[in-house]
Structure formats: C-alpha cells, structure tokens
Amino acid sequence: MNTKLIMTSSAILLWAAGLILTFTPDFVLKLLSLAESPASMVAFQVIGALYFGFGMLNWMSKGGLIGGIYNRPIAIANFSHFMIAGFALIKNLSANPESSPVLWGTGIIYSLYAVCFAIIVFRHPLPEQR
C-alpha cells in the first residue's frame, strides 16, 4: 500500500475539514440542519483546529516509513480516528437513512480511510511502498 499517498490525501482532507469548520461553522451547522448557538459555533471551531492539527501531523509524517512497528503511534492515531468516526457515522446513517448526502459521503470516505489505515497498522511495510 502506498502510505505516502494515503498520508497526503488524508492530510489534505483533514486540512479542508479543519479550515471549513474553523472559519465557517455557521455554514456547516446549516448544512447539517443543526441549531446554531454560541456553544456549537465554538465547538465546531475547536473541532476544526483538531482536524487541521491532525492534517499537519499526517503531512509531516508522509515521507517516513509507516506501518507495522514503524511510526506506529501515527498509524494507530489515524486508524482510531477514522474507525471510530466511521462507526459513529455508519450507526447514525443506518438509523436515519434519509440523512444529508454530506453525511453519507463523509461516512463512505471515513470507512475507506479506516480500512486503509487498518492495513497500514497491521501489515509490515516494504521500503518501496513508501
């Protein structure tokens, strides 16, 4: 598996989500049909900062050997994030199939990244796969 491609694409995805959540939380709240309040605005901005920081971690780690025992904390952190969030999205979507297409797309993307990072975590990398 090409870990550099996975790390780069996840960094870009997380940066985009981070910037959108940080600078336009009101737009995201309306898109998800959620009530806009000062607390939800700040919560979304904090989540945006988290996503942006996680994207920076992935970007800075993209050139290193990742998988198996190499850079394991980074691989586990990504696997945990995408798996847990993917499960939460899938659970929500199965209970509410009429949910926003944005949530459906996010659920699919998160599930794909969860599978990719599971492979990275549980498989020994080959040097030419970097």
Rank of each mutant, 00 (worst) to 15 (best):
L126N: 07
E36G: 08
D26R: 12
A88F: 05
Q45L: 04
F87S: 13
L89S: 01
S10L: 09
N58Q: 11
M1D: 08
N78G: 13
L93F: 10
I90G: 03
L31K: 00
K30Y: 13
L57Y: 11
A85N: 15
E98H: 10
S10C: 14
L29E: 05
A43T: 13
L93C: 07
P97I: 04
G18H: 01
Q45G: 11
I119H: 04
L103W: 06
L89M: 11
L31H: 01
L34E: 07
L93P: 07
K91E: 14
A85S: 15
W59L: 06
I66F: 03
P127A: 06
E128G: 08
G105F: 13
F52K: 04
L19N: 00
L93S: 08
I12Q: 02
L5W: 12
S9N: 09
S61C: 08
G63V: 04
F87G: 10
T24V: 15
L103E: 02
L50W: 06
M60C: 02
A39F: 13
Q45C: 04
V102H: 00
L50P: 01
L34T: 03
Y51G: 05
D26I: 14
T22G: 14
M41L: 15
L29G: 08
Y70W: 07
F82N: 03
A39C: 06
Q129G: 02
A95N: 05
V121D: 11
W59K: 05
N58T: 11
I47M: 15
N58L: 05
G86C: 03
S61L: 07
V46Y: 11
V121R: 01
G18E: 08
G67Y: 03
K4E: 11
W104F: 15
G107R: 05
M83P: 07
A17K: 00
L112E: 13
G53P: 02
N2S: 10
M60L: 10
K91W: 12
F54A: 00
M83H: 09
H124M: 08
G105P: 12
Y113F: 14
L29C: 10
A43K: 09
I76Y: 15
I90Q: 10
F27I: 01
N92E: 10
I109N: 06
I12F: 01
V102L: 03
I108S: 10
M1H: 04
S94K: 12
W15I: 00
F79V: 12
R130V: 12
G67D: 02
A75W: 01
L14R: 00
I6T: 07
E98R: 06
F82K: 00
N71V: 02
I66G: 04
F27H: 06
T24N: 15
T3N: 09
A114Q: 02
R72Q: 11
S37K: 11
A16G: 08
F52P: 04
A35R: 14
L21G: 13
I76G: 05
V42L: 13
G68K: 01
A88T: 09
A114R: 01
W59D: 06
T8P: 00
F44T: 05
F23T: 00
Q45R: 08
I69R: 00
G68S: 09
F79I: 12
Q129S: 05
I108W: 05
L32Y: 15
M83I: 15
V115K: 01
M1Q: 05
A49L: 15
W104H: 14
F82C: 09
P101D: 08
P97R: 10
A35Y: 08
P125H: 07
M7V: 13
